[in-house]
Every structure is written in C-alpha cells, then in structure tokens.
C-alpha cells in the first residue's frame, strides 16, 4: 500500500512536471496558426553569434525581450532592404514570414543569456 502510494505520488508529480515543461501557460506556440517556438529557437542560434552581448546602445543591439511586432517589423525591413546593413539584409533575405514570426515570438519570450 505504501509502495503503491509512493509510486502514485511520484508519478503524479512527474506528469505534472512534464506537462508544465512541455506546455507553459504563456507558450502559445502549440496552438493552431501560432508561431513555432522551437523553430524560433533554432533560427535564433544564428542571431546569438553577434547579439548575445548586445546592449541597448551597442552597434549590435540587444534583441531579447523585444515585442513580436518590433522584431517582425525590423526583420521585414531588412528583408525588403529598406533598412540598411548588409549583414542583416543577408540574414533576413532567406527568412519566410513564418520564420520571422517564429523568431519574433522566440525573442519576445526570451531573456538575454
């Protein structure tokens, strides 16, 4: 009885932890049509090379915690080449709308390492 109770209690905790880990309440990336958080995390690894130590005033700025709207607007402007900087224009040139949305979602939800 005690053994079963312990297994049960352990299992319930484990399930709770797993559910919490898999789907945080603020993460809408699993919802239909919502941005893909995992894709955003992967694409963002490219950004980390330069932006990881950025501050608000540095030439390569901090982009963690920006709003989805802001990241989307800026990346689309680089993609359209209406915003200068060849490095960023090159990075943005291959991003689809869906990928920009995923990146924007990721950065809006992420803190600087």
């Amino acid at each position: 009885m005690i053994v079963w109770y312990r297994i049960c209690r352990f299992s319930m905790v484990a399930i709770t932890v797993m559910i919490a880990t898999a789907a945080p309440v603020w993460d809408r990336s699993g919802a239909a049509g919502a941005p893909d958080m995992e894709l955003g995390r992967y694409l963002a690894t490219e950004c980390m090379t330069c932006h990881q130590s950025g501050t608000a005033t540095s030439s390569v700025p901090n982009i963690f915690g920006l709003t989805e709207t802001r990241v989307t607007e800026v990346m689309k402007a680089y993609r359209d080449k209406t915003r200068p900087n060849p490095v960023m224009q090159s990075v943005a040139s291959r991003l689809t709308d869906e990928e920009i949305a995923a990146l924007a979602y990721y950065f809006s939800k992420s803190k600087k390492p």
Partner: peptide, 17 residues
C-alpha cells in the same frame, strides 16, 4: 567606423557563445 564597432560587438557576442 561602424564596421569596426560592429566587429567589436561581434567579438563580445561570439566569445560569449
């Protein structure tokens, strides 16, 4: 000059990475 500043920021970023 901006390129140089960019490279300095890149260095800080990549070594942190």
């Amino acid at each position: 000059k901006q390129n140089y500043k960019e490279s300095v920021d890149w260095y800080a970023g990549i070594v942190a990475d």
